[in-house]
Design a protein around this nucleic acid. Structure first.
Lengths: 231, 231
DNA sequence: GCCCCGCACAAACGCCCGTTTGACATTCGC
DNA sequence: GCGAATGTCAAACGGGCGTTTGTGCGGGGC
């Protein structure tokens, strides 16, 4: 029965893989249940049987993509905080903890690398209210922790200013993920050749400079009440 | 007949306004022709009569939103270049030329300000291949000019590195536009209260720091062949 | 006065959507 | 072996979609 169950779950797996590939290529809205079942070689009813309805499949795909990233971000942040034992950590290390998991978090999908990034980028461009509640909540907890930690590393940057810079950072990140795996346009050559790892390195330097901007010049209140950050 | 024509063109105008409002609120894909005509108080066939087909209306909305921004960006860049008469201009001034038009470009739509920004943000998050050819081409010319000008202002930053930083910058910008006019979430208070103008100021400082990162430290080839930037 | 043109409208078209149904095969626990 | 559970399938359902059609109305040009 053990291996039977596994064998049984194959079509469900194929459905999921087909859905992820199509979602990555065309976006969630542009993919029909019929597209998915056709690609998976299954019956039209298969999605409803295995996942309830289309919406549920979408939510499952989102959380499978996002949750591992969120968890690894948390873990890496804790590790950085432990390493600096309460003291202010360098911004670069925290940005690394925030960004690196995009490439390294354990994948539940079997998507090729660039497609995986593309799908992640799509998801991060989605408004949080259409995310699964649990994934959104974890994400909020995570960003909250990063905000607090960043506030400690940049005590001269006002909290509300930090919220904005964090928004700019997250926006640039989502854009970067979509950039990877561009079909065939000028400028793509570099992206494809370089790979996400190198892009992340560049991005960290870029965002770190932006986050730090003005710290040695300005005179501001030292870290007001932490402002909320919603992605 | 003159005022007749004007009076006659009213329903077309109402169609356009209805479309823009709904596109801004829900995104292009989620709005049906029937939604638009209902809101405009017109017949279902009105969109096809006045605009040919739905796709055409979408393209028209996009170019009406984007083209004025592109033109003003060009104009401002030229003005900056003239002001510095060929010498390298400060990055902040060029970022201002790039970003300020988002708020100041002449609006062809009658959308309330925040809705207008939201729609712009949606459009900038769209892949260029679904833009009207002409708008995309103008946009490419514009980004090309900015790339070259930025290369002159940041001679120690390698051209390909600059392409990446430009991507991060554009991504953060699109994100910022979507952030404005967020429905009713925590963190919105600040966005709504501050308004786009103040956001732009913060963004310019953020992006300028990121673009300049490492200029006084690194030793690099002085501006190689300009790399292409596709948005 | 007549015709024609610009426009609005109700109705219908064909298509694709997500989902449901019921019949049928297969495998399980016992 | 035999009911029950599980999975697959073709077919159909109702509804929303973008678009087309044909009719009717009104004012302007000749």
């Amino acid at each position: 029965m053990r291996e039977e169950k596994i064998a049984r779950s194959k079509p469900k797996q194929q459905l999921l893989e087909a859905a992820e590939r199509l979602f990555a290529e065309r976006g969630f809205e542009a993919v029909s249940v019929r597209d998915i079942t056709k690609l998976a070689g299954a019956n039209v009813a298969a999605v409803n049987y295995h996942f309830g309805d289309r919406e549920n499949l979408v939510l499952l795909v989102i959380s499978r993509m996002v949750d591992p990233v969120t968890e690894e971000r948390m873990a890496r942040l804790e590790s950085v905080e432990k390493k600096w034992s309460g003291k202010a950590a360098p911004v670069e290390e925290m940005l690394d903890a925030l960004t690196r998991p995009l490439a390294t978090a354990k994948r539940k999908s079997t998507l090729p690398e660039t497609m995986h990034h593309r799908l992640l980028g799509r998801i991060f461009s989605l408004p949080p209210e259409i995310w699964p509640d649990l994934s959104a909540e974890r994400m909020r907890q995570m960003t909250g922790r990063f905000m607090r930690a960043l506030g400690k590393s940049l005590p001269t940057v006002p909290a509300e200013e930090l919220v904005w810079r964090m928004h700019f950072t997250m926006g640039g990140m989502a854009h970067m993920l979509l950039l990877d795996a561009l079909p065939d346009k000028p400028g793509k050559s570099q992206a494809a050749a370089v790979g996400l790892d190198a892009m992340i390195g560049r991005f960290i330097r870029f965002a770190a400079a932006g986050l730090r901007e003005g710290v040695e010049v300005e005179e501001t209140k030292p870290a007001g009440p932490q402002a909320t950050f919603d992605f």
